[in-house]
Computed example of a mutant assay.
Amino acid sequence: MGGRELGAVRRHVERARLHARELKGSLRRPRARWAGLGIDGPASVIVRRERRGPTTVAVSDPTMHRDTVTVLLCGRPQREVTSGDGVRVRAVHGGTRLDFDTRHAHGRSFLATLRSSA
């Protein structure tokens, strides 16, 4: 990753850590992308990828002003195993799109578990 790209990541990510296969981030800028993850606006996101196992995505809206949070997991499309109410999962070009309905959620977290489609 070049210096320009690294600088862009630092501007877009308020707090983020990558430990083994777990990605945690709190993003404030619209359409931020980091480590194979795209987010359409302010959100708190945790992605945990298990080797040969499921991928778990947890999302919340800390602003409590958004109706929907959209997350794009770049890479091979994945299918939904389990999810809570207000979560939609679909394969898109370049990955998997998850839409979380956060309207009137008052900051609570939403969870989705995915598996590789292949």
Rank of each mutant, 00 (worst) to 15 (best):
R11Y: 07
E50I: 04
T102F: 00
G2R: 13
A32H: 02
T55R: 04
G84N: 04
A58H: 03
L37A: 05
A118Y: 06
L73C: 00
T96H: 02
A112M: 01
H19A: 06
G25W: 07
R28P: 00
R21H: 09
G107V: 11
G107S: 08
A58Q: 12
T68A: 10
V59L: 09
A112E: 02
G3D: 14
V45G: 00
H19Y: 06
R17P: 00
R76I: 00
D101V: 08
H104Q: 14
V87K: 04
V9H: 11
G94V: 08
G84E: 14
Q78A: 05
K24L: 08
E50H: 13
D67A: 14
P77T: 06
S116H: 05
C74M: 10
L111N: 04
A58R: 15
L72V: 14
H65W: 04
A20D: 13
A16N: 01
R103M: 07
K24A: 04
G95P: 14
F100W: 06
A91M: 04
M64T: 13
R21F: 04
L98M: 13
E5G: 04
E50G: 01
V92G: 10
G86Q: 07
R29H: 12
R51E: 09
H12P: 00
R66H: 10
T102Q: 01
D40Q: 02
G53Q: 11
C74G: 02
V81T: 08
A35Q: 12
G25Y: 00
D40W: 01
V45F: 07
A16H: 08
R90D: 03
R21Q: 08
L111A: 04
L111S: 06
R76F: 06
G86S: 04
A20G: 09
L111V: 13
R79F: 01
H106Q: 11
T70G: 00
R29G: 07
M1T: 11
E14L: 14
R108G: 02
D40P: 03
D67Q: 13
A105E: 08
M1L: 13
H12A: 15
L23N: 00
L114V: 05
R4D: 12
G2H: 09
R31L: 12
M64E: 15
V69Y: 00
R49A: 06
R52F: 13
A16Q: 03
A43S: 11
A35R: 13
H65P: 00
P77R: 06
A20R: 14
H93R: 15
L18Y: 09
V57D: 02
G38P: 02
R88M: 05
G38C: 10
G7Y: 11
V89N: 01
H104T: 03
D67E: 15
G75W: 02
V71Y: 01
A58N: 06
D99P: 01
T102W: 00
V87F: 03
L111M: 05
R33K: 12
S109R: 14
R90M: 08
R31I: 01
A32P: 07
R28N: 11
R10T: 08
T68M: 09
E14M: 10
D61I: 12
R49E: 09
G95L: 07
A112N: 05
S117D: 06
V45N: 08
P62R: 12
D61S: 03
M64P: 00
D85S: 11
V45Q: 02
G86M: 08
R17N: 08
R115Q: 13
E5L: 15
V89G: 03
D85L: 07
P54H: 10
R21D: 10
D101Y: 05
S44R: 15
P42T: 14
H12W: 09
G107I: 13
